[in-house]
Amino acid sequence: MARWVDRLVFALSAVVLLLGGTGSAQEAPPAAGPTAPLRVGVTLHPYFSWTRAIVAGTDVEVRSLLPGDVDAGSYQPRPEDVAKLKDLDVLVRNGLGHDDFIAAMLTAAGNSSLRQLTPSDATPTLQGAHGEAANSHTFISFTNAIQQTYYLERELAKLRPQHAATFHRNATAYARKLRKIKADAALALAEVAQPRVATVHDGYAYLLQEFGLEAAVVIEPAHGLVPSAAELAAAIGSIRREQLTVIFTEEGFPAPLLEVVRREAGAAVHVLSHVATGDYTDDKFEREMAENAAVLVRALVPPTKSGE
């Protein structure tokens, strides 16, 4: 009898110990749960500015994956950049071909828990000037920037609900700031006589469309490709035929070629930012886009109307 009672007491004690152990495990805070500071990596400069604007005032870390002085179009992955991916929680990427280099980097980094966000999904895309693929420059636009900021806000709030209200407030304020820049430029560009222009590459299609402008000629045969002599001659012919008087270029296009186009086509050349190189700063996007808007006004509105 005593032996039977001993066994019963031993069994009950074991059950109590097991239950107690489980309870204490449930109460322990998770090592890296939703309360840990979120680490967000970005591939392009605009994504850095947008994400920083959203997470301001929180502990979310935003990390650029590429060095500032390299354009994503000519970037070659480096081991030190792959290392930046290893402990990331979230990656913000274009997903339309502008940062395809990231796929190999992700494989090399081996970070299987990484959540990928593609803000381009939140915007209506345009077809590229050459080929049938979507134009990947969804980030060079005020309207698109607002929609993509909202998308990032929603997705980040899912991952850190405790910051959702802050993200929401920040995103709303940022959108208003961008919308003000756009509205001022739209007012100045309302009476543009010749809305058709030439561009060196296809990256400005979204920006032009939101102001009712159109790239009638795109000089580069594909994104980042320098045109051959024959292609350059054909582009000059098209600019003359279309009677275009303004060419928008990016900083990196070879100056000698640009000079040939300017001279032979008889059109004025203006530089627009691609928001693609330089230091990663919080205000880079709004600053360079405000300057882009000012360039559009200077290029297309006669000085008397633009107040110069």
Partner: peptide, 20 residues
């Protein structure tokens, strides 16, 4: 959307933002 003329695309891009 991709099949629409540019002017209408502009209108709808704005409407899309307004819907948001």
């Amino acid at each position: 959307f991709a099949t629409l003329p540019a002017g209408l695309q502009r209108d709808l891009r704005e409407l899309h933002e307004a819907g948001e």
